[in-house]
Simulated assay, not measured.
Amino acid sequence: MFKIPFFKKNKNKTDHIDHIENVPEHVAIIMDGNGRWAKKKGLPRFAGHKQGMDNVRNIVRRANNRGIKILTMYAFSTENWKRPRDEVDYIMKLPKEFIHNYLPELIQENVRIQTIGDFNLLPAHTKQAVNEAKERTKSNDGLILNIALNYGSRGEILQAVQQLVKEVESDKLSPDTIDEQVLAKYLYTTGLKDPDLVIRTSGEQRLSNFLLWQVAYAEFWFTDKYWPDFDDEAFDKALLDYQNRKRRFGGLTNKK
């Protein structure tokens, strides 16, 4: 069992290191609350998105330190296009800024960047920045930073079904051979382990069209903290809480 150094809370103070087991391999985060964080501080929403982007770097570094193998971060949903045009335009510029500021560090930390989502509607400059990050980190074999960009789970499942139908119609696939494993190969997340732990910030307690198929047996952890305020201590708290979960996957635990 993989063990990592873990800061265990004692009398409201993180003051000593303990060893824990059962670290989640794949953590997925719904990064929510950038706009509300900015409003609370009397700042424009843009400031919240900027602070949220900077916090991605912090949590990636923490996840890497804690031995997480895959970190999926919900950066922009297919529904987010409904936001004001100037806000969307600003968000679409953040990948380039993120890469300029933090890509060298991610490369040094052996992080590999991947993405899930429909890239067809993304601006050219966003695609270019993301593709550069993926290309420059493709040889890294450490933490996978999986960015969900223009992602929607219903659309993902729909396109998977459409592809399966085409395969059947062209006699490349028999309907009798289609099971959960086959369908999963047509999802954006093919090749990735399903999330073990889903974290959502800002006090909301819903999935918002995020990895509906993949999180069927994931554990959920919610916090009232807005994403820009979600720090190392909060992340550790989620991991520590995960240690106490009993994952039965529909069965019963073995009695000793």
Rank of each mutant, 00 (worst) to 15 (best):
K8W: 15
K8H: 15
N10Q: 14
N10D: 12
N12P: 12
T14N: 07
T14M: 14
T14Y: 13
I17D: 11
D18F: 05
D18N: 07
H19F: 13
H19L: 15
H19Y: 13
P24G: 01
E25V: 08
E25C: 09
G33V: 01
K39E: 02
K39Q: 11
K40P: 08
K41W: 05
L43N: 14
P44T: 10
R45T: 11
F46H: 10
Q51P: 11
Q51A: 14
D54E: 14
N55S: 07
R62Y: 10
N64V: 09
N65Q: 06
N65K: 13
N65L: 08
R66Y: 12
R66A: 06
I70H: 04
I70S: 03
A75D: 01
S77H: 00
T78W: 02
E79N: 02
K82H: 03
K82V: 01
R85P: 09
E87P: 01
M92Q: 02
K93G: 07
K93N: 08
F98N: 03
I99D: 08
I99V: 15
Y102S: 05
L106D: 11
I107N: 13
I107Q: 13
N110M: 04
V111Q: 02
Q114A: 13
Q114H: 14
I116P: 11
I116C: 06
I116S: 08
G117H: 03
N120K: 15
N120Q: 12
L122C: 07
P123W: 12
A124Y: 13
H125D: 04
K127Y: 06
Q128H: 12
K138N: 09
I147K: 01
A148V: 04
A148N: 06
L149R: 07
N150R: 03
Y151Q: 00
E156S: 05
I157T: 09
Q159T: 07
V165Q: 07
K166E: 14
E167R: 07
E169P: 11
S174M: 11
D176N: 11
I178F: 09
I178A: 14
E180H: 14
V182A: 07
A184V: 10
Y186F: 13
L187F: 08
L187G: 10
Y188M: 03
Y188P: 06
Y188S: 06
T189E: 01
L192Q: 12
P195K: 08
I199H: 05
T201Q: 09
S202Q: 06
Q205P: 05
R206M: 00
N209F: 02
F210G: 00
F210L: 00
L211C: 06
L212R: 01
L212K: 03
Y217L: 07
E219L: 09
P228S: 05
D232V: 04
D236T: 08
K237A: 12
A238Y: 10
L240M: 15
Y242I: 15
Q243T: 09
T253L: 10
